[in-house]
Design a protein around this nucleic acid. Structure first.
Lengths: 221, 221
DNA sequence: CGATACATTGAGGAGGGTCAATCCGGGTGG
DNA sequence: CCACCCGGATTGACCCTCCTCAATGTATCG
């Protein structure tokens, strides 16, 4: 029953993290009600239409939220890294799939915990609104950026979210990134090659590690 | 000091409307704290970076939320019709421009009203999460739909939001719609022509009125 | 060692962007 | 009342970015 506490200390810099904005007494309560869960690679935590009776915090690994359109067209709404919260639903029903990328361990926060603890509820609402912000960034990317800009901006934003690491550990496939950016995996691959030739990033290792040589350079293009 | 009450009775069917989900006692309180405002065409209610000390409910007219990228590239995040609420901010600061399309009358709800009235606060949070849902729809459109599908889906969703009217009153320019759908105004115009040739819609009048001949037909394409 | 899964690279085509010309309605001023 | 003008819609021609399809490379696993 470690809940989110440990993880959040490691990645507290990013906005929207739960523990970073929780008062100590709320943390104590959270520790009491949260339960841990584990998922294997590709496992689906929930699907659209399922009752949403809990929030989830990522402890280890990456979870991906997806939605599918007619014709099998898939959109990856977001990638959730350790310390981040997901599972927000409007009318008690999930609107997307939650898929584990690699081994994922989660902490489960029942919605009933919110009614019991208004402080926790307020903080979660704040996180929800922060998700709204991330959604805006994605809309800007999809609506008004070229393919190269989308890839570069995606890496740059990820770099910020993960506390400016020297390299990104990306457990998802290129096709997942493509479905996130409204592109094809071949296009993502080509654009990564361009950024590599510019000296902004290194080569994507088979283990999903991508060295960031000039992260700030990703900002403009 | 009519607040939102009157308007909401006219358009209560759509999800996310404020009054539709407000208990009577909350409405009374809302009536007490809300203040009316008017905007002329093109007038800007707030800009990114400004302190967000109030929410706004649209009483008459349409308001548009926009964001601008380097190079003057603009993205229209949403169009807000009568009965709808906007002004959600994360850290007390607005993240976009709010622009009036034609004459707009608003009702202003100070954020202080939320701390005084937890019921009102809870309802507004629900609306905020509903906005999150609308954002998902837009991401699906931008990421995975063709130009024709985007235009058709935009009209279809609008038709649902406005309680399935026989015709849409669109006070915005084609370029605004284009900036909403990640397209160029010429493309929107061409795609509208295609839908017209298919007999799904009528001709866009100079007054912004667009007859919907087969609204259900817009769903698939 | 072969099989599988995914990344990578190439060649060709289509959808939508870009630029420019024209249309059209409404407003203005003579 | 009419000519003029202006902003935006519409349409056409051309081009570029990205998609599509296919081949090849490469690492992991049985």
């Amino acid at each position: 029953m470690l809940a989110l506490v440990d993880v959040c200390h490691a990645t507290a810099a990013a906005r929207g993290r739960l523990c970073a904005c929780l008062a100590p007494q709320a943390l104590g309560h959270l520790r009491a009600v949260a339960a841990d869960t584990c998922l294997a690679d590709g496992e689906i935590l929930f699907r659209p239409g399922q009752r949403a009776d809990a929030y989830f915090g990522v402890r280890q690994g990456v979870t991906m939220l997806t939605r599918t359109l007619s014709g099998g067209r898939r959109q990856v709404l977001s990638f959730l890294f350790p310390g981040e919260i997901f599972g927000f639903a409007v009318q008690g029903v999930h609107e997307c799939n939650a898929v584990a990328l690699g081994h994922v361990s989660l902490c489960r926060i029942p919605v009933t915990a919110l009614t019991e603890d208004p402080l926790l509820a307020a903080r979660l609402h704040r996180v929800a609104r922060s998700c709204l912000l991330d959604g805006l960034d994605q809309v800007m990317r999809l609506g008004r950026m070229s393919a190269t800009e989308r890839v570069a901006d995606f890496l740059f934003q990820l770099w910020l979210r993960l506390d400016r690491p020297d390299e990104l550990h990306l457990p998802m496939h290129l096709s997942d990134v493509a479905d996130h950016l409204g592109l094809r995996s071949e296009t993502v691959c080509r654009k990564l090659a361009i950024l590599r030739r510019k000296g902004l990033i290194g080569s994507l290792g088979t283990d999903g590690v991508l060295p960031l040589l000039q992260p700030e350079g990703l900002r403009q293009a």
